[in-house]
């Protein structure tokens, strides 16, 4: 059971990493506009000329 002393800190580190990633994503504006990127993805499939 003492493996918990290793697993628990690892779990916490993972959770902190996930939260940090979320905060980074939010701060860089990934969640600012929830509509346009979905449509943009439909459009960007071909580039006739650069």
């Amino acid at each position: 059971m003492s493996v918990i002393y290793i697993v628990l800190p690892i779990a916490i580190v993972l959770a902190v990493a996930a939260v940090a990633a979320f905060i980074w994503a939010t701060r860089t504006g990934q969640y600012d506009d929830m509509d346009s990127p979905a449509l943009r993805m439909l459009n960007d499939e071909e580039e006739p000329r650069a």
């Binding site: 996930a18 939010t26 701060r27 969640y31 600012d32």
Partner: peptide, 20 residues
């Protein structure tokens, strides 16, 4: 925009805290 982001971060952090 920055107000929105701060709000979202708060919810995210609270959500992570709830899960753990």
């Amino acid at each position: 925009t920055s107000e929105n982001r701060r709000e979202l971060i708060r919810i995210g952090v609270a959500g992570a805290a709830v899960g753990n």
